[in-house]
Amino acid sequence: MRPSVVATLRDYGIYLALGALVAYFAIALPQFRTPDSALLVLLQVSVIGIIAIGMTFTILTAGIDLSVGSLLAVAGMFSGVFAQKDPSAVNVALAFLLPVAIGLLGGALNGVIIAWAGVNPLIVTLGTLTAYRGFVVWYRVNPIYDLQPYYRAVGQGTAGPVPIPAIILLAMAGVAWVVLNYTRYGRYVYVVGGNPEAARAAGIDVPLMKFSVYVLSGFCVGVAALIFTSRLMAAQAISGQGFELQAIAAAVVGGASLFGGRGKITNTIVGALIMGVLFNGLVMLNVPAPIQQMVIGVIIITAVWLDAVLRQRGY
């Protein structure tokens, strides 16, 4: 193959993969061809997709955020506390805004330790993964339910046929795409991850940049927590377990390099969609869960391996 063809494959191979999967399920399952099914996939990937947007920023700086699932449980819990109370203006505002504020705060805490105490992001967020979970279980182990009906609007509402969570996902992905591609901040994110020495030499405040991506990740988690809690109409201390791996998988399947400096928001979203299409299609086909897990595992490894092979050849 000519190098340009291979390069194109590397950049757009993931779109082909998604297209192939959709085509396969559409042939195998008449119900998969319906618009309802497509919208369902968007709805089901919304929470992980939004978390994966923040995750992509941290991965681009050669970092990682393992605390997202635990932080989601904390943010969701406090959202639930106020969503259960009588719908006064203050309670409604807190139910919607508090999870985002908690996400920002949790992300900022990660960011401060990583950026200025200089501790490895893997260690810091592994620590906060445990600590945030411990906190929320200590705060309240039993679910909060009987949430006020208005609270459904975010997670279960639709605009026409389109679920609100899908709209939020696409809007946030759009903003993140613009930021990464068309702003100085976005260029700095890539430079900090790809070549920190050059970043320092160019006068970029590297610690501040690192801090900022964890705050962004926390913000995404806060929004995801609101959607997740509203979708379930219940807040649980055990929510979000394992979400970090799903979000990382979406970014990595989308071609993001865990060594930093390389990755795209569009590809991360496609990575999340691949996981969502697989889940939805395999469940609809009633494939047993252990086989679903194997298929997803094989796809993650294949995607990363293929990417590595193409890169080694210098494309």
Binding site: L40, F228, R231, S239, M284, N286
Partner: peptide, 24 residues
Amino acid sequence: FTEQYADYDRGKGQSVTESLLTRD
């Protein structure tokens, strides 16, 4: 029965049911 594992998890129980009921 149409049997699917949902890991005792509420969110997973919701997603699996959504997919199955969208089909039938």
